[in-house]
Design a binder for these strands. Structure first.
Lengths: 265, 265
DNA sequence: AACGATTTGTTCGTATGTATC
DNA sequence: TGATACATACGAACAAATCGT
């Protein structure tokens, strides 16, 4: 047996999709029809459809049928600071605090975000490694969900050493927004200036909870970006770790290095 | 029927894996054994295993069994330029040309790369949009495969307007390496200085050919990063588009903005 | 090199459940 | 409510890959 039959059927359907013979959003023939057409059993047809599903080409809906997936218009997030927005004193990422809102609106989309959920936590190994604190150190975690046009877009959790609160940044520990942004707030209250940050970008399978929030299929078909931003003050000390999770199917990222002309679009 | 049986079986196995009861690399019980243990049919057991496979937790090997996946030690690529390496004249990404080799070796790994495959091509819509040239414009494409410790790591294709060759950068069109790096070469021959670049990062399902090169499963279980770098000269004109593809399961990316202390590790 | 035992992969048939219109 | 669609589950048989003898 050279190529299994379900792969041949999948390949045939794939070509119909990629050639544009089947257009995005269009419904495929039903399983009984395909079974008839290819002279295979229904289970074999289903195996072919499952294959296409894993490739991200089609989607099945119980009671309705199988449909060619539409490509999502991705939302673009810039990871590097806008030179015009940064001073020699501080460097602020464009997607930080409430500062992401202008970029969202610039793409003709409508941003919103949940109230921050603030907790006291002990640093786990990951947080400890990024912030250079011992495992178990007391941290303030601030968690927020962001939406674009009503659909869940990102989950963000920031970790700050609790020491910052003790030293006077008390609003960090309150479950309310800091409208001017945390970077500004820390500069004003503690003279802690964020002079740079390091982002680490990776991809992983979403946890069940994340999949539920983002309305992703539970089977791990769609992955998420995890971006960890470690921010540093003027002494080179890490002051913050922000972990943000974005579904890979509707997001992309941009970074600018050196002199770069503004985007045409 | 609340939760389907195959999901319950998958959940039970998942807990065994995440609790460390089943350790990475360890073999699961065989399908007949699981069938016996859970009192389900073999097909139902197989559905459970398929679910775990999609979640990236296990891997099946024909004739051998099902195994808990080991986490791969990811390879880290820096996307921003090292300030010490950049002059006011030109900005060079750390992963460009042969310059990626030092970073690879710094992680105690052994880099190698294939001879470049050079072609004359017409610009497709994607290339045209990034470089601001008309669709169908004549381009030089230079394609290369890179390996780390012998395993395929990235596929890179750069597009240059053929005009650059006409103006004197003849080595661009030759199927041989440019050891000093293309950025340097273009600066020397045409006084074209790369003063900045823009990277765009997205994730997609690999094409069949890419999956074969990277030894990824053909079923789209593992996605790839696609990073598009548009480089600009001192007049703000795009001079190059480089598209690099990396498997998401063994790569991560880092970018530094502002003043950032060197990594401890 | 050959063979058999074991393990997963493919394909069929069938029945019933659940979602949608 | 009925008809139609996909989802779940069982049983069975053979194919193909792997490993040890």
């Amino acid at each position: 047996m050279e190529t299994p039959m379900y792969r041949q059927i999948a390949e045939d359907l794939r070509e119909q999709i990629e050639s544009g013979d089947l257009t995005p959003g269009e419904q495929l023939r039903t399983e009984p029809e395909l079974k008839e057409h290819y002279g295979a059993s229904r289970n074999t047809v289903r195996d072919a459809i499952k294959w296409l599903t894993n490739l991200g080409l089609v989607e099945t809906r119980a009671g309705q049928g199988t449909f060619v997936l539409k490509k999502i218009n991705p939302y673009v997030t810039t990871l590097t600071a806008d030179p015009k927005e940064s001073t020699t004193d501080s460097v602020v990422g464009p997607d930080e605090g409430d500062r992401y809102a202008p970029e969202v609106m610039a793409q003709s989309r409508n941003p919103s975000s949940s109230e921050p959920q603030v907790e006291m936590q002990k640093a786990n190994a990951m947080v400890a490694a990024h912030l250079g604190v011992p495992v178990g150190a007391q941290m303030v975690s601030r968690h927020q969900r962001r939406f674009i046009d009503g659909t869940p877009w990102s989950l963000q959790t920031s970790f700050y050493p609790r020491e910052l609160v003790v030293r006077g940044a008390e609003r960090l520990a309150l479950a309310e927004n800091i409208p001017e942004g945390v970077v500004r707030y820390l500069a004003d209250t503690l003279n802690l200036r964020q002079v740079g940050y390091r982002d680490s970008i990776m991809v992983r399978t979403p946890e069940a909870k994340e999949a539920a929030i983002f309305n992703l299929p539970q089977d791990g078909r769609i992955d998420v970006f995890e971006i960890r931003r470690t921010a540093f003050d003027q002494t080179g000390t890490p002051i913050r770790l922000t972990v943000t999770v974005y579904p890979t199917d509707r997001n992309q990222f941009v970074l600018n290095v050196g002199e770069v002309p503004p985007t045409a679009d």
